[in-house]
Simulated assay, not measured.
Amino acid sequence: MTPTPLPRGRHRLSRDEVAAIQRSRILRGMTEVMTERGYADTVVADIIKRAGVSRETFYQRFSSKQECFIAALDAATDHLAATLRQTAAGAGTPAERLDRMIGTYLEVLAADPPNTRLFLIETYAAGPEAMRRRLASQQRYVDGLAEIAGAGTQEQRFACEALVATLVTQVTARFITDRVETLGELREPMVALAQRLLPRK
């Protein structure tokens, strides 16, 4: 999603609206730069140049590159989680809902490669707090899968965790090897794996 630009000259936006637009531009600028350079080689100067904001504006919103990264990570994972919840809440059998959930997950990631790379790859370089947040987000997907599948035992819960871990690993591999366009190919085999691993309804 392209951030909303600030209008030129005088405008009627409130201070909060301006701050929200600036924040959005900074977060998007950071994800785009990190797609090209990676977390370690990205500096604040790169982010503010891409975002089209001043250094002062950046530090009004974030105290550091890492805080900016974590904010972008939270925004990306919250968006994905909300989309998956909406998808999973629809009507249908558990098998149909699992199919929709896995399909939606792949579609959302394929549609926004910069945020997907941030979530799947750059968290490894961004420090322990970023990794904790990624793992917590991944656990939300496990919770949703377990609810749909009716996973009531420890063994069934572990199957959900293994399924999500496998899906994340497969998606990450395609991003690392520049095969984002093949993400859709994972849907059928992952749904088949889910049906084998999870309890029958």
Rank of each mutant, 00 (worst) to 15 (best):
L98Y: 07
T77R: 03
I102E: 08
E107G: 06
T177G: 10
P114R: 01
T172Y: 06
G38F: 12
T93A: 14
A71P: 01
I21H: 00
T116A: 08
V168M: 14
K49W: 08
R200V: 09
I176C: 11
R12I: 01
A82L: 14
G127H: 08
A111L: 00
Q154M: 14
A111D: 03
L13G: 03
H79E: 02
E56Q: 14
P189S: 02
I47L: 13
Q195T: 12
A82V: 07
T57R: 10
T172F: 08
A40S: 03
I176M: 15
K65F: 11
L106T: 09
G52I: 10
K201V: 15
D41M: 11
T153I: 09
Q60G: 11
T87W: 07
E56S: 09
R132H: 12
A40L: 08
E185Q: 15
Y39P: 00
A162H: 07
R61I: 12
A111E: 03
L198S: 01
P189N: 03
Y141K: 09
R23V: 00
R50K: 11
A81Y: 06
G144A: 01
K49R: 14
T166M: 10
R28A: 02
P94M: 05
T57I: 13
T35K: 11
V44H: 05
P128F: 11
A146H: 05
A91C: 07
P189G: 00
L27M: 05
R85C: 11
R61N: 12
V108D: 06
R200W: 10
A19H: 06
Q170P: 06
Y124I: 13
E161D: 11
M101C: 06
A76R: 02
